[in-house]
Design a protein around this nucleic acid. Structure first.
Lengths: 341, 341
DNA sequence: TGCTTTCCCAAAATCGTTTTTGCATGGGCA
DNA sequence: TGCCCATGCAAAAACGATTTTGGGAAAGCA
């Protein structure tokens, strides 16, 4: 049923090696033979078996994208959707396909298995779970190329590509300070995530830059569950001196907060300003439209794939650490601070 | 560096076949030998080479999800994000991984290559592009299991899983009719898509059920480009007798329309009612919250994977045609028709 | 004891390619 | 003519596992 290289060889009275070399552009095959082989392959509808090819060439032409999230991440959001699409597109442009590994939260050892069994040629890592570092070390041991997406990594051997969280915080906080805000809260992702930790550090650093003293109580944490962001905001609003503006971990949570505030009858931006992060498509479509930081997802995705494949070609090359600039997108969810008017 | 089955065999003074059979639960290996092999495998950090295994077993333990969209689909939306996540989860639950094939719009022949090279064990097909049917036939020829997602297929040999678009239209139109609407428009996806055609047929059928005569001018088409839905709505509103309610192809487009109407200063649902389709997460978070049809994505994803793997096990089984029920979710974007008050 | 069965395991075949090696054939050159 | 080299292909060796085949040793039975 399925036609193999043998069938072509038999059909033309050639050996399989000649057929293979004809199809793979070797230069020790007569042009006429190449033509005949190509034509026969076409006619018989021949496509090489991926498994056999992979085994012999020791490569799979696939890269993996591992989404390392615990149960706190119960749902994808638009950000992931975009990221996955862009990574897949970048990979396909280079004739690679994308394998999705999700639900790795419970068992980072699956990473080890993926690497050791060499079922992909490289791994993109997104997310953070307990035990991840050890799993990553096991990838390095077998020489599996890998790139961490979205946060810096301390280990100088490990590639990463991330948006500039410090610049982002500077832009967000700076924008709010210009509007007269001094009491600026931050709602981050679960504190065990290094994404969250990194962003918190960026928030603190930005506050310091604008001469605002850091108040620990102005940081709250939320997961991506439906009501979580609302509860986190509640905690901030319940303070003696509640924030007049809140910078959010991402747009998804920011939009949840907008919705929550609307239900509570609080007007944004009149009573409180909100700044998001990512600039997902919905950010511009909610009411009020969300002021946010544009995350250069396409660049992140493209660079991640580039770096991964470059490391595959030259495993000895130094690790690449890439921090990409972000932009402030001012929409309707931020305004002059009431108490500063 | 990478440890293979030979290393274990050498290490224990056994043959590779015994090691393999010990690891694969054959019953002609002494329990003590199995124990030793298992332990050695653990200690040496052995994982079987996926490529070698795939070649010998003639399976890859991967399924593909092909997204067949032309350039009209420039972006994923939440619906796809959810679908991909749920399909991946369903696959992983059965120890399969998901390979994403995107950007197949320009060349459905890639499907043929995927099938012939057997790089996945089955294919889930989502979307519709010119030349798709011929490509699908080529999959059938090589016996690649496949399931079409999201729309019925005429060919009785082809599995499909879809939400019930006719019930959806009945629920949506019925709801609007109850509110007094008689002039109900429909904004569909690009007319070349069979998704669009099927949904239009459902819309017509629902109108007929409620005794409303069909007016071709009340159907408009939009792509998923940013301004496309707004333009389509404009066309409907420019009619002599514009619709008092519009049923939308999906929530993404419905939300774009809400945004567009807000910019135009039209109040929803006071001046016009809008019904969506899918019930993506954003649907409940926009203002006004969107009345919509809940698409049972999790069931669709789970059933699609089940059917695919079942067909893999028994290629002679009859094709499965599954139409899953939907639900009406009433929120804030629909109200009593003004002219009926 | 002798024969059959059962239990383990080794050896070899296999999956379908790619890559290496080797060998004719023919042409160029002295 | 004799030698060498380039050309074009066949044969065989990988790739690393699984599966088939076969056989020796121990155990059971007459």
């Amino acid at each position: 049923m399925v036609v193999g290289i043998k069938d072509i060889a038999a059909h033309l009275g050639l050996s399989t090696s000649t057929v293979s070399r004809a199809l793979n552009d070797y230069d020790d095959v007569a042009p006429e033979t190449v033509r005949r082989v190509r034509q026969a392959a076409q006619e018989l509808g021949y496509y090489p078996s991926a498994s056999a090819r992979n085994l012999r060439r020791q490569r799979t032409d696939k890269i993996g994208l591992a989404l390392l999230y615990g149960s706190a991440y119960t749902t994808f959001n638009e950000f992931f959707a975009e990221l996955i699409r862009l990574v897949a597109a970048a990979a396909e442009k280079r004739d690679y396909n994308l394998v999705l590994y999700t639900g790795m939260g419970e068992d980072p050892c699956r990473l080890t298995r993926i690497a050791q069994s060499r079922e992909v040629d490289g791994l993109l890592l997104m997310g953070d779970v307990p035990g991840l570092d050890r799993a990553i070390q096991s990838l390095l041991v077998v020489g599996m190329p890998l790139v961490v997406i979205g946060r810096p990594v301390n280990d100088p051997q490990i590639n990463y590509v991330t948006a500039d969280a410090f610049q982002a915080a500077r832009l967000a906080i700076g924008h709010l300070v210009e509007l007269g805000h001094r009491r600026i809260g931050y709602i981050s992702f679960v504190p065990t995530s290094r994404y969250s930790q990194h962003r918190c550090a960026a928030y603190r650093s930005a506050l310091a830059e604008y001469g605002i003293s850091f108040d620990e109580r102005l940081i709250a944490y939320a997961s991506l569950e439906a009501e979580s962001s609302g509860r986190a905001l509640d905690a901030l609003l319940a303070l003696d001196e509640p924030p007049t503006a809140v910078y959010m971990f991402n747009d998804r949570m920011a939009i949840e907060v907008l919705r929550y505030l609307a239900r509570q009858g609080m007007r944004v931006p009149d009573q409180i300003s909100i700044v998001g992060f990512d600039d997902i498509r919905s950010a511009g479509m909610v009411t009020p439209a969300l002021t946010t930081i544009r995350h250069p997802i396409a660049e992140v995705a493209g660079q991640a794939v580039s770096i991964l494949l470059a490391q595959r070609l030259d495993p000895t090359a130094a690790a690449v650490h890439l921090t990409l600039p972000v932009e402030l997108v001012i929409r309707e969810s931020t305004a002059v601070c009431r108490s500063a008017r």
